[in-house]
Design a protein around this nucleic acid. Sequence first.
DNA 1: TAAGGTTACGGCGATCGTAACGATC
DNA 2: GATCGTTACGATCGCCGTAACCTTA
Lengths: 301, 301
Amino acid sequence: MNLSQIELLRVLQETNLNLSRAAEKMHIVQSAVSRQLQLFEAELGSPLFERQGKKLIGLTALGLRIMEEVATINRAKNNIQMIAADYLDSNHGILHIATTHTQAKYFLPVPIRRFREKYPGVRIYMVQASPEQLIDQLHARKADIAICTEKVDEFADLVVEHCYEWHHALVVPQQHPLSVGEISLERLAEFSVLTYSFGYTGRSTIERAFKDTGLKLDITLAAADTDVIKTYVRLGMGVGLIARMAYDASVDQDLVVRDLTHLIPSSITKIAYLKHNYLPLYSQHFITELLLAGNAFQCKA
Amino acid sequence: MNLSQIELLRVLQETNLNLSRAAEKMHIVQSAVSRQLQLFEAELGSPLFERQGKKLIGLTALGLRIMEEVATINRAKNNIQMIAADYLDSNHGILHIATTHTQAKYFLPVPIRRFREKYPGVRIYMVQASPEQLIDQLHARKADIAICTEKVDEFADLVVEHCYEWHHALVVPQQHPLSVGEISLERLAEFSVLTYSFGYTGRSTIERAFKDTGLKLDITLAAADTDVIKTYVRLGMGVGLIARMAYDASVDQDLVVRDLTHLIPSSITKIAYLKHNYLPLYSQHFITELLLAGNAFQCKA
DNA sequence: TAAGGTTACGGCGATCGTAACGATC
DNA sequence: GATCGTTACGATCGCCGTAACCTTA
């Protein structure tokens, strides 16, 4: 048994059990891959893969169980390399952040600016995606840290830290009936609503609030980002249900923002990263920076 | 990086960082070990060991952190081999049990007999030792399963299962003043007591019972095994404080046994084994056999 | 016939062993 | 001088790459 055989098993999973593509990924010829797999299976004494003719079509029970250990080994191997690199120089490296539009636009600018001041040598890559995709990015190790509000609690292999709590707010054009007076869910339900796509930015808490009262929301537009919502609110398509922090007093003066704290449960934006996975010092620092900024953000709101 | 380098780091720890002995253990010459260590440190870019001249005298901060990952990899590697061997043939193998005298003599015979009926091909090795030593045996992977009453709860890297609950009892010669009448801790404290050595067979609960009342125990003899205690009770050296199940009606008729359930808190005998460590099917079966026997044992008592 | 996998064989390089040397007690 | 570790060098064995071959869509 050796580490390249362990690596091979990982790569095979990532290539749909295709030996040729696995060979490419590992920068060796296909016959070498074929042989190493045979050697490994021979050493263990039983096949790890189900075969149809010569093709690999799936894992055996044994293979399935062994893949768990393989994943552990690969994680630890990567960790060793990361730890050593970090020890040599913790001021350079790459930080992959995966997040949603709302966080990227309204929350991250401050912590990222502060982070860059402290670690100018670290390159930052940001990926914008849906919460499900963020988690996939983490699992595929294409992102180091994910920041979002939804979904992340459901995965046992993620470390999740609460960053800040926020509420939804209503935005309407000036003169709109909802721009004054008491707001209730009943009154809200009478209007066309523009809000986030399913699975984005606390949409689930909105659903919950309305489901609990038995009221039905009339969602005319569901967008992944707040700017689209604001745009169509300005066009008079309906009322906007957005994250409070996405209302920007300096550019949104033409819109009236109404507090909904009493109507819709709060949402919590979280930071998530893989368990058992070493994060360089600068990444750890970025997380504390996020938590700090989260605190400040929460107080402001 | 390769698996033998990882293995080397483990072996080095086990040999007090002595390259020569590590080489022996790995069945290669010392110069090869020296070179592999250099190569590995060079690959990581910083030394893993503190050196005094050429001698290794300790781990660096980096080395310390990396050793954690190394342990993980070695565990997973062993698991792979165990899982595969188990898959090939789960009826043969070796089961290393580490336990205390009391368990070995009064509890284990039944579950072990039943286990051997089901797995005649599995060789059983039993080691008798003190609870601390049992745990060392687990950590050194010289034992697969430890069965005892004390200590095991204190280790986070062990899986601990409760097996059965039991009480201490008093054994005295016939005609002894304590052979009749009400027993209290106060009355007990008037006599010389023979019981288990510190750290054995629920000795800690005895301590606790007496410490709580402020009474002082006069322990004339502390032994690791019940038979020694009984022997000296028969010689009239004092009263015996033993585990209830260690009183054997068929051979101890000359002794009077008195229940102490109301005086001394109960003890729990536990099964412990390493976390993140694969146990062959037969070992898993042995554990269920132990739990079954523990249940029966508890009812009987 | 293209795509995926296996088998055979020669060459190269990683790693080992031998051996001589250096340091430390 | 005994113990422990390093360095140099030749030999070996493992692993890769080339290439021919087999199988199935």
